[in-house]
């Protein structure tokens, strides 16, 4: 206490000290990362794991409960669920990633454009995004999918991606409106930097942490959207294996009480979703950390 009227009380330990006391893995989402890594590795190396051909219709063994030969049982078309999980997981993950990459790219470009435009144009573009946000997402997806015709992996990723960029665009636009008057942006503009150059070099590094968790959570939403669509029979057909299309057989499974057809693909879906969410939430927490006064 050097000062005479210093505030009495516990001096909170500085951020640095506390960080040093912790082990490297504390506060990091270790379990989700490990699980996610396992699932991703399993799906992309599915050729090594699969015990059967996932597309083979074994008509003698349909609706078989899990046993030694069929680890997770077989579905009502006689396909081995264990092999399908890994094989189909690849499709689901690819759709999640492609759709998210598309939505992030559209969101960033649209948001940056809107943010750097004059007031009135910005207003128009933002009203437009709000109208799009207000249309129920699933409905939009169903419409677009209908226009594109029969669904395949790429078309479904495209449809999901093109309908989920709005919230990212809103955040990017807010950030860009704040950043665009900074000196370094003006300097870059004066020196002849183009829109994309400034966006990539000066703006993106500043707002990337603000949208990172939204991007991660978009992966989750894309996977859910695909599975919901395929489940309704509007997405991938049954022959094209994904976690969603595996679940589209579940109506049948309910009648025969074949719980494994419903439970197992759903569990894999759920574990992946939870892990991705944890990762997203971790990023979000890191982005806005503040201490309680309570």
């Amino acid at each position: 206490m050097k000062e005479q009227f210093a505030i009495v009380g516990i001096i909170p330990a500085s951020e640095k000290e506390r960080v040093q006391k912790r082990k490297w893995y504390q506060g990091k989402p270790v379990f989700p990362m490990v699980f996610l890594a396992l699932i991703i590795a399993g799906c992309f190396a599915c050729d090594l794991i699969m015990t059967k051909d996932p597309a083979y219709l074994d008509l003698k063994n349909f609706n078989v409960a899990p046993n030694r030969e069929f680890l997770f049982g077989t579905d009502s078309m006689g396909r081995d669920i264990f092999s399908m999980i890994w094989y189909g997981g690849r499709t689901s993950l690819v759709i999640g990633i492609v759709a998210t990459a598309l939505s992030a790219a559209v969101g960033i470009i649209f948001g940056a454009l809107s943010g750097s435009m004059p007031e009135w144009a910005d207003g128009v573009l933002m009203r437009f995004t709000e109208i799009l946000l207000s249309v129920p997402g699933l409905l939009l997806v169903v419409f677009l999918q209908a226009i594109l015709g029969k669904a395949n992996v790429l078309s479904i990723s495209f449809v999901i991606g093109i309908t989920s960029w709005m919230s990212i665009a809103k955040v990017v636009r807010t950030e860009v409106r704040e950043l665009r008057t900074r000196e370094y942006v003006i300097v870059s503009k004066c020196m002849g930097g183009g829109f994309f150059h400034i966006l990539w070099k000066h703006l993106t590094p500043n707002f990337i942490s603000a949208i990172m968790f939204m991007v991660i959570l978009n992966i989750r939403n894309a996977i859910v959207a695909e599975s919901a669509l395929s489940f309704m029979g509007l997405g991938l057909p049954v022959e094209e294996i994904s976690w969603g299309s595996m679940l589209s057989l579940s109506e049948n499974a309910l009648l025969t009480n074949a719980w494994w057809i419903i439970l197992i693909p759903g569990m894999f879906l759920l574990i992946t979703l939870v892990c991705v969410t944890d990762l997203g939430n971790y990023l979000r927490r890191r982005f806005n950390r503040k201490e309680s006064n309570l």
């Binding site: 599975s227 679940l247 309910l254 719980w259 759903g266 979703l273 939870v274 969410t277």
Partner: peptide, 29 residues
């Protein structure tokens, strides 16, 4: 909470039907 919020709605409904309607037969499906 995080786990429940991640459960896809349609899958949750299926599970509920499977448990309470098909197996336990407590409620209509």
């Amino acid at each position: 909470g995080i786990v429940t919020s991640c459960i896809p709605e349609f899958w949750l409904s299926l599970l509920l039907i499977l448990i309470f309607a098909v197996n336990l037969k407590w409620l209509p499906s």
